[in-house]
């Protein structure tokens, strides 16, 4: 592909304080591509996503993150958002004093558009409530996707967009995710790409994601076709990848000595 990649993560290492959290992360997302990150709880998936968005306290200790060829490491969060990076948080914080409609107004988004998208996501009744304040798990997920629909990001980062969502809502979320990734357009015309963190294969079915990775202890292991990886995890758990991780670590330690 001659096109400029949307996102390039280049040998990235991230600390929290002085504790290493992620290392050796490489990932390139071209327009139209969806990359899927699996991994056990606590392996660093959300940390990776938030690092791309520039959210503290994650500290990049080496490597680079580029958006359309330009390093964004020095960009504050809002600058990254305005470049076209959008994040659906796994656990959005309650913002009691700001409602979805107040936020929409502050972002100068057309109120009719807000109303229409909210209706589609069944969030009309939540428009004037404090954001995420007392929202159920499913409502939080719909609210996050609603905000991304309104924001129309070019690089879409979805952190477990379907966890805790019931079967009926899942269908709705899937169609919204397909829309975010322009699945209604021919492949060549797609300009949006992104990363999805997930534990289930359910949302991947019609997305034709590009590649999957398993994050273990802050490193990518077992990359492959997303649905293959998912099947493998479903059958064997993360065991195989953990074993691979352990072997790699041993080799690494051996080479160091």
């Amino acid at each position: 592909m001659t096109e400029m990649p949307l996102l390039e993560i280049d040998d990235l290492a991230v600390n929290i304080g002085n504790e290493p959290l992620l290392s050796g992360i490489n990932l390139t997302v071209a327009p139209g591509e969806i990359h899927v990150v699996f991994g056990p709880n606590g392996s660093g998936k959300s940390s990776l996503i938030k690092t791309i968005m520039g959210i503290p306290p994650y500290r990049v200790t080496s490597g680079d993150i580029r958006f359309e060829g330009k390093s964004i490491l020095d960009f504050p969060i809002d600058a990254r958002a305005r470049l076209g990076i959008g994040l659906a948080f796994q656990q959005p914080p309650p913002v009691r004093d700001v409602s979805l409609s107040a936020l929409g107004k502050a972002l100068e988004i057309d109120t009719d558009r807000i109303a229409a998208e909210a209706a589609r996501l069944g969030m009309t009744g939540h428009l004037n409530r404090g954001l995420n304040d007392g929202f159920s798990g499913g409502e939080q997920k719909r609210s996050e996707l609603l905000q991304l629909l309104l924001q129309r990001p070019q690089l879409v980062l979805l952190d477990e967009p379907e966890s805790g969502v019931d079967v009926d809502s899942l269908k709705l979320l899937r169609s919204v995710i397909e829309q975010l990734f322009q699945r209604d357009r021919p492949i060549r015309e797609r300009t949006v790409g992104g990363i999805i963190v997930t534990h289930t294969g359910a949302i991947l079915e019609h997305l034709h994601a590009t590649r999957g990775y398993v994050l273990v202890n802050g490193k990518f292991m077992c990359s492959g076709a997303p649905l293959d990886i998912f099947d493998q995890i479903s059958a064997n758990g993360f065991g195989n990848c953990l074993a691979e991780a352990r072997i790699k670590e041993k080799i690494h330690d051996f080479l160091k000595e």
Binding site: P56, D78, S99, A106
Partner: peptide, 25 residues
């Protein structure tokens, strides 16, 4: 709260705009 500011900034508001929006609300 910092996490509230970060959240609103992730939607594209500057830190000052996010702060003002929270105070207003």
């Amino acid at each position: 709260a910092g996490d509230q500011l970060n959240y609103l900034m992730a939607r594209g508001l500057s830190e000052e705009e996010a702060r003002a929006l929270i105070i207003r609300g």
